[in-house]
Design a protein around this nucleic acid. Structure first.
Length: 301
DNA sequence: CTCCAGGTTCCGG
DNA sequence: CCGGAACATGGA
């Protein structure tokens, strides 16, 4: 007698050392929606329901269990991750402790690349809004039992749209970048599956050849989709956290900072990055304090 | 109304 | 190599 959720048979998957809500809301992905006691959303081209029940994960439909376990990276040993961190690094220890159970996902490559192209200079809430709107307007509608979600639109689908179509989804100046990258993939000028097989440096180079993909977005794709767990994306939050913890006096250039993190954090630097990122956001580290600061750049012509 | 957001690209020292 | 500036849009 199998258990039923939303009209679907469920599977129970062992998931120790895992926090579903923390992971899905950590800023790696932007499309999961709270539903009942769990979450629903598209996992590639199928809709699934996930719910945490202690050290178990409830998955519907049941035959999505293996795919879900892979996506959520339940096979990563977080014990090994923590053990790899520099012993003397108290800032990282503190962040890691606050993010217990947070895992790095294995996202579909195109979905991850496209989402982070749209992410530049946007707040997480707005990235989510854009992402959901693109799915609902141009993605395939997915149904299973009582569940519904939308797949991320394929490169081919985007290739048939216009820049105006994308600007209508609030993409702004990112619209031409997403469109050009989608067309490069749709026309087979670029092959993400092939890039996925390259080493980290080569893959980063190939990604950065795409319009709208710089060092930060490239590293997000390396980390969140290609499984390069040593990749370390540096954004404004991470930069603030790094400066507070490691460079209190001077301000290193972007290149110097990247060299530092690559040598300091090691094999699982990506996990260190995600922990520092999420911890900084939760504690509101360094958000420029309003009004107290001396008025800056108040130049009027 | 002002400031800023999981950046990238182009331009002049 | 490095610092600045432009680029859209919406929430705080």
């Amino acid at each position: 007698m199998s258990e039923i959720r939303y009209g679907l048979p469920v599977a129970r998957v062992p998931a120790p050392d895992f926090d579903l809500a923390l992971t899905l809301a950590s800023g790696q992905v932007f499309h999961w929606k709270a539903l009942g006691s769990g979450w629903s959303g598209a996992l590639g081209d199928r809709v699934v329901y996930l719910e945490q029940c202690g050290d178990e994960l409830i998955v519907a439909p049941a035959d999505a269990a293996l795919e879900v376990a892979h996506y959520l990276a339940l096979d990563h040993s977080l014990e090994a991750v923590r053990a790899s961190f520099p012993a003397a690094d108290s800032a990282l220890r503190e962040a890691a402790e606050a993010c217990r159970g947070l895992r790095l996902l294995r996202q579909p490559c195109w979905e991850c690349l496209a989402t982070f192209i749209t992410s530049s200079m946007k707040q997480v809430a707005h990235i989510r809004q854009i992402s959901l709107q693109l799915r609902e307007r141009y993605g395939e509608r997915l149904e299973s039992g009582e569940l519904t979600a939308f797949a991320y639109p394929t490169p081919e689908r985007f290739a048939g749209l216009t820049e105006a179509d994308l600007r209508a989804c609030a993409l702004g100046y990112r619209a031409p970048n997403l469109l050009a990258t989608a067309r490069a993939l749709a026309q087979r000028e670029t092959d993400l599956a092939a890039i996925a097989k390259l080493n980290r440096a080569a893959a980063e180079g190939a990604l950065r050849a795409l319009p709208g993909v710089g060092p930060k977005v490239a590293n997000c794709v390396l980390l969140f989709a290609f499984g390069h767990l040593d990749a370390f994306p540096i954004d404004v939050w991470i930069e603030r956290a790094l400066r507070a913890a490691y460079f209190p006096r001077r301000r290193p250039s972007a290149v110097r900072l990247q060299q530092f993190v690559d040598s300091h954090f090691g094999t699982f630097g990506g996990y260190a990055q995600q922990y520092l990122f999420h911890h900084a956001r939760m504690t509101g580290l360094g958000r420029s304090s309003p009004r107290r600061s001396t008025r800056q750049k108040r130049s009027s012509p």
